[in-house]
Nucleic acid binder design. Structure first.
Length: 328
DNA sequence: AATCGGACCAACCGCACGACA
DNA sequence: TTGTCGTGCGGTTGGTCCGAT
């Protein structure tokens, strides 16, 4: 047996992705859709392992990904779900369609685990206090009851725990009536794919690319990573062409603005904005208009995207239906 | 200003599994 | 039935950032 490596180890680039590589990958996925990752390195010319390409796409470039700080609601959900499901990050991520499993996993490992440990320490101290008190009480009354719990009691406690967990999850899911995708109903990974990159991701990608190409004779390292996670919505007024490369050229080469969005053959894009505005770009406001159009296109996509579809379906979903899921 | 150590996170690694020939 | 391929998943690593000293 022994599977061959997904690609030759020799000549495969590792480490952080450059904006150029991101753009190559995004434009390829836009044309062909995600999948058949083995062909991606050869077809794109990327010196990357197919697996690396897939990971980069799913964890970073994929549309609909939200990056940055987790909200309190998300945090609560993760905690509850982790308590219920364990380290099933993919399962947990399916409840938070805007987050990747990797993100959730990292957030858990870096923030929540510590937080919970602290809390647990606090409650353990509290318990310890109670136990000391109980021990004192039992020593003064009976001697048999302090040795653990009987099987019946354990089962009863387990049932209570399950009930509490269910209740907790229910609470978490109904936080602010925020609709949540339930995996039994919605499988984000199997949604009809749409391949415009997310507003944030591509904008930042381009931004990073512009910045880097402007200093491309200095260094071009991790521009797309940290920067992107710390900034808000990417398409800011900062996104102006840098010296050395014309933004419109980049957009045109990436998305074919002057032709229209997507080729006629590309059904994934046929639903996108194919307005004739593309040909209206003229003169000094061309770039600005392109950006606006680009932004609208992306926003429109995300409006009808996976997340909202999930929300809509979930709004028709009663949490009581999950009783089987929990084995009741 | 330099150094150090912890925090953070993108990316990698290896295993598992389903689909398919 | 078996082997291969494509992909998903969870754990881990390594690079970068940033605050403390």
């Amino acid at each position: 047996m022994g599977r061959p490596p997904c690609c030759d180890k020799l000549g495969v680039k590792k480490g952080p992705w450059t904006p150029e590589e991101d753009i190559m990958l995004v434009s390829y996925v836009q044309q062909h859709g995600p999948g058949n990752w083995r062909q991606v390195p050869t077809n794109t010319g990327l010196s990357r392992c197919s697996k690396s390409c897939r990971l980069r796409w799913t964890n970073y470039l994929r549309p609909g990904i939200r990056r940055g700080d987790f909200t309190d609601d998300e945090e609560k959900m993760i905690i509850q779900l982790q308590a219920l499901l364990g380290n099933k990050w993919a399962a947990i991520a399916s409840y938070l369609p805007e987050r990747t499993d990797n993100d959730i996993k990292n957030y858990w490992n870096t923030h929540l685990r510590k937080k919970l440990t602290k809390l647990q320490m606090g409650s353990e101290e509290h318990d310890l206090l109670h136990k000391k008190k109980d021990r004192f009480m039992s020593s003064t009354t009976s001697s048999s009851s302090s040795h653990g719990i009987s099987r019946g009691q354990w089962e009863k406690r387990l049932q209570t725990d399950i009930h509490l967990a269910k209740q907790a999850l229910n609470d978490a899911l109904s936080l602010d009536h925020k609709p949540i995708v339930v995996p039994q109903i919605i499988k984000p990974s199997t949604q009809t794919p749409v391949y415009p990159s997310s507003t944030d991701n591509i904008a930042k990608l381009l931004k990073g690319f512009m910045k880097n190409t402007s200093n491309n004779h200095k260094t071009c390292s991790n521009a797309s990573t940290r920067e992107s996670s710390d900034e808000g919505n990417g398409l800011s007024s900062e996104s102006k062409p840098c010296s050395g490369i014309d933004l419109s050229e980049a957009l045109e080469s990436l998305f074919g603005f002057d032709r229209s969005f997507g080729s006629p053959n590309d059904s994934d894009f046929s639903q996108s904005n194919t307005s004739p505005e593309g040909s209206m770009f003229q003169g000094e406001r061309k770039e600005e208009l392109q950006f606006m159009m680009f932004e609208n296109w992306l926003l429109n996509e995300s409006d009808g995207g996976v997340v909202n579809q999930g929300k809509e379906e979930l709004s028709n979903f009663s949490f009581d239906e999950t009783t089987d899921f929990f084995g009741n």
